[in-house]
Design a binder for these strands. Sequence first.
RNA 1: GGCGGCAUGGCCAAGUGGUAAGGCAGAGGACUGCAAAUCCUUUAUCCCCGGUUCGAAUCCGGGUGCCGCCUCCA
Length: 496
Amino acid sequence: MAAPFQLYNTLSRQIEDFVPLEEGKIRIYVCGMTVYDHCHVGHARAMVVFDAFVRYLRHRDWDVTFVRNFTDVDDKIINRANELGEDPLALAERYIEHFQSDAEGLGLISPDLEPRVSTSIQQIQDMIQDIIDNEHGYVADGNVWFSVGTFGEYGKLSGQKVDELRSADDASGKAHPADFALWKAVKPGEPSWDSPWGPGRPGWHIECSAMSCTHLGAHYDIHGGGLDLVFPHHENEVAQSEAANKEKFVNYWMHNGLLTMKSGQKMGKSLGNVINVHVALEEFPAETLRLYYLQNLYRSSLPWSGEALPEALAMLARLYDAREKAEAMGGSEDPERVAADLGEDAQQVLELGQAFEGRFYEAMDHDFSTGQALGYLFQLARAVNRFAGHKKAKKRGGPVVAPALQAFQTVADALQLMTMNTEDFHQEVKTKRLAALGVSAKEVENLLVERTQARTDKNWARADEIREILEAKKIAVMDTAEGVSWRVRLDAPSEG
RNA sequence: GGCGGCAUGGCCAAGUGGUAAGGCAGAGGACUGCAAAUCCUUUAUCCCCGGUUCGAAUCCGGGUGCCGCCUCCA
């Protein structure tokens, strides 16, 4: 049975009980990329948030149909292509390939459908025709405009009033400044398709209306995207879709908050302050970004800084290390008995492990509160670590940490965190962090061989000297009962 | 000018009227040849002023500050 949950709805500005249109099923559309540049860490937040949302819903037995588009016909693409002397669709294709590579790097599930504007022209034209037929659109000089004044509910999503808008100057032949283009007449150097109104191309907003309604129906459950799309993009989608189909478009509007810089301003291409995803992924495992995003409520703004990813990586390592300790514990006694024998910390890790799933689901079902849900996870990790300090934990502790291990698995399934084995995780961290620091594993290993010899000789001075050399390179050396190991320190500066 | 959002310890941050999760950083301690990791201890008049309530970080009103959108933006 699909589990009930609550969701903040931009349409009502409050948290609502989610009621699906069809029992057990959720149809969701998320605005994807306009492909004229690389995917940056701000886009990635949206991608990861909705990825985790869909994963969680499926984990909770919802039958989810997930559609995310590519906008591959657009002013910005055309402008960029003309600057580069490249065909716009070829440029778009190139950035779609970049995106797919980033999506794979981020560990995103593939949407069930990834429609593109360039292959949805017929559906777009059909919808424009319906809008015209329903007297909400008009043709002028090969352009088709949406007539905002004919749609009484215009503004119901964003709260904007047509008369209060600050309108940009343009001499495009619109009847009203707030009217917007459904179809743009062809201009030199632009891709175009034949249409009943002459050759041209779709306006910005119509593609999402047409593609989502084509694949999910005229009326579907959830539409997602960045907060900066509420107006005008999503407002216009509502107007177009409802004008064309004469029925309610979307039940729940879900908007992710934006990444902001230290100054408080958002990260945005137009502000020139972006960090591209592939750059971040060269330095940090994908789950680092995921944890960074999911620590916070999805609809709050999220500050970016050079410390953000190192900090998230430290948190992630803490989780992996706790899990590793739990995995190393053996024994097959009754957990209650072990807990009774080994004392309070054993009792607590058992109880927190058993309680985890319920608390996790409760947080997640309350408007996808991943930050709170992850707080419980860290409480559990600390309980595991504390218990792991006991002498008998390794031999007999297995049964009392079994629920904790199950909890970690739940998080892995639902949020795609802690999905690697610990060794691979640390290896990836080493590889990526060393590359970022410009240090080779070979030189570290060589120094450690020398240090191990020095320690065998009880030459502590030399051993400490080598430790200091490595410290200077941000390498932390750990002497354990099993021998020496090392890690890259996480406080290494990153761009930001 | 219009619309919307936010304001919680050094930083990030959860918080669904019943008395402040979690993470990072700092300090002290345990552990260690020295360290690292880990554990323990440690810091909050919840922006200000009113109001509702037995009780408010949470609800209402006013103020201040910051941010987003109204032109492309996840």
